[in-house]
């Protein structure tokens, strides 16, 4: 074989291997792009999974809170459930549940926790329309203390959150939260959902329990009266 034909052969081989290398590089690039897209997709899935986990978590809290609120007609038990929701599900350390006395138009504490953190929380008495709590009861709209306002430290008159307990447009009371547990730094999205749930469901549960205990008392009175009539006749 002449030098010339050897050189041609070599060139041909060289060109083939160059084409092959270029093909490999293209394939490599394509696979890298595909991998990148898959990684992006994985990240999307991971984000969505976390979001769904969080939603599941929130739904579980809402379901349990709602279930427990309507699990009894005993007034004290209903109040106890509201306290459990505020403490265990929202993370409230110092709070008060106030009910509105329709005769005096005054909100008064009927249950509370964390008196050592917020002295006086156990004896709050506010007229409808007075201060933040009175305004919340009058307007039927929740109040949240803005944390970015450095001067806004919670006090007895200015809670972290005040939520009206409403049956349709009628306010029957207010929940005021003054301090959160040490491990809880701020309200989260599910807390606002729980506040909304408490506003409606706690109100109806408390109202139903009150009506039930009233009807029980009346029934007992009627029964005693009937017993008296039967024994005297």
């Amino acid at each position: 074989m002449s030098d010339e034909s050897r050189a041609e052969k070599f060139l041909e081989l060289f060109n083939k291997s160059r084409e092959f290398t270029e093909e490999l590089l293209r394939e490599n690039e394509r696979l890298r792009n595909e991998l990148g897209a898959l990684e992006e997709q994985n990240k999307d899935y991971a984000t969505r999974y976390t979001e769904i986990e969080e939603q599941n978590n929130n739904l579980a809290s809402l379901y349990v809170a709602s279930y427990q609120l309507h699990s009894t007609l005993d007034f004290r038990e209903v109040i106890h459930v509201v306290q459990e929701i505020i403490r265990d599900l929202i993370g409230g350390k110092s709070y008060a549940i106030l009910l509105l006395d329709e005769k005096t138009n005054e909100l008064q504490t009927i249950a509370c926790d964390g008196e050592d953190q917020m002295p006086g929380v156990e004896t709050i008495s506010v007229r409808l329309g007075d201060g933040i709590l009175g305004e919340v009861a009058k307007r039927g709209e929740s109040y949240y203390l803005h944390r970015d306002d450095e001067n806004a430290k919670p006090s007895l008159q200015r809670p972290l959150a005040a939520v009206p307990l409403k049956i349709k447009d009628q306010v029957i009371g207010v929940i005021a939260i003054y301090k959160l547990l040490v491990q809880k730094h701020a309200f989260t999205a599910v807390d606002y959902e729980l506040f909304a749930l408490l506003a409606a469901h706690a109100a109806t549960a408390i109202f139903s329990a009150k009506l039930y205990s009233q009807s029980e008392r009346k029934l007992n009175t009627i029964q005693s009266f009937l017993d008296l009539l039967t024994t005297t006749s």
Binding site: V64, Q68, S71, E84, I85, D88, L89
Partner: peptide, 10 residues
Amino acid sequence: SPTMRQLIAF
């Protein structure tokens, strides 16, 4: 707390 018992079980 029955609320927490139910939430944990859930």
